[in-house]
């Protein structure tokens, strides 16, 4: 017996449908990433390397963008909160290296990790990992030779930073007072949405009277871009 599928007379909730669709594409992108990663492990053909690298980078970018989009949607529908745990930053950075290094190597970039065993933070591990992965994926488009991730304790905050040795962020991004999700442009990378999301997640982190934040500068390696996530 077949079920007759009937159209609901409630009509289409476009936003909800969009969110579900985004969710679905995001998961598909995840499968593409996995597939591309395993091709990387089995195929040694140098000829396909640049295309494969592009595939891996762009699939990750799609995945990150959609995660941000979905995260922002959930925040607006109060379905998104944070789930902080005690995190050892050395472990976290080790994981960032593990996830990103294969791809950075292909691009001939050097990945420097500056971590101390004793730096601990109290934050939502998975969200912070996601944000930093996205920033690193973005930075590799601009870096000339090196990307550096580091952690430190500054003014009572746990600070996680991603720096590159590229040309730095465009001046209009740095001088902007508010991070605006609408400023996304392909040529500038997907910084608008990603930064907006990062900033929202950072603000959800509070400890006593301190609130988390994101800061950008061109104090990276030799004047390159520097992204800092300040977590109380």
């Amino acid at each position: 017996m077949e079920d007759v599928i009937e159209e609901s007379d409630k009509g289409l909730d476009f936003v909800e449908a969009l969110a579900n669709c985004v969710h679905d594409i995001k998961n598909s992108a995840g499968v593409v990433i996995n597939a591309a990663d395993s091709i990387r492990q089995t195929v040694s053909d140098v000829d396909v390397a640049p295309e494969l690298t592009a595939l891996q980078t762009e699939a990750r970018r799609i995945n990150h963008d959609l995660i941000h989009l979905l995260g922002l949607y959930k925040m607006d529908h109060s379905k998104q909160g944070i789930c902080p745990v005690i995190v050892n930053c050395e472990d976290l950075i080790e994981e960032l290296v593990a996830y990103n290094n294969p791809l950075l190597e292909m691009r001939g970039l050097q990945f420097e990790a500056d971590a101390h065993e004793s730096v601990e933070g109290y934050f939502d591990r998975e969200h912070v990992l996601g944000i930093l992965n996205s920033v690193i994926n973005n930075a590799q488009r601009y870096a000339h030779a090196t990307i550096r991730v580091a952690c430190s304790v500054d003014d009572g905050y746990t600070v996680l930073s991603v720096e590159d040795d590229g040309d730095g962020y465009p001046q209009e991004i740095l001088t902007r007072q508010e991070i605006d999700p609408g400023s996304t442009s392909y040529s500038a990378g997907s910084t608008g949405l990603g930064l907006f999301f990062a900033s929202r997640i950072a603000k959800l982190h509070r400890h006593r009277d301190r609130v988390g934040r994101v800061s950008l500068s061109n104090d990276g390696i030799e004047g390159g871009g520097s992204f800092k996530l300040w977590l109380p």
Partner: peptide
């Protein structure tokens, strides 16, 4: 672990 994950990340987590 949150997907997507690759070999190095999985290795690291299992080890931990």
């Amino acid at each position: 672990l949150v997907k997507p994950l690759n070999k190095s990340v999985l290795e690291l987590r299992i080890e931990k």
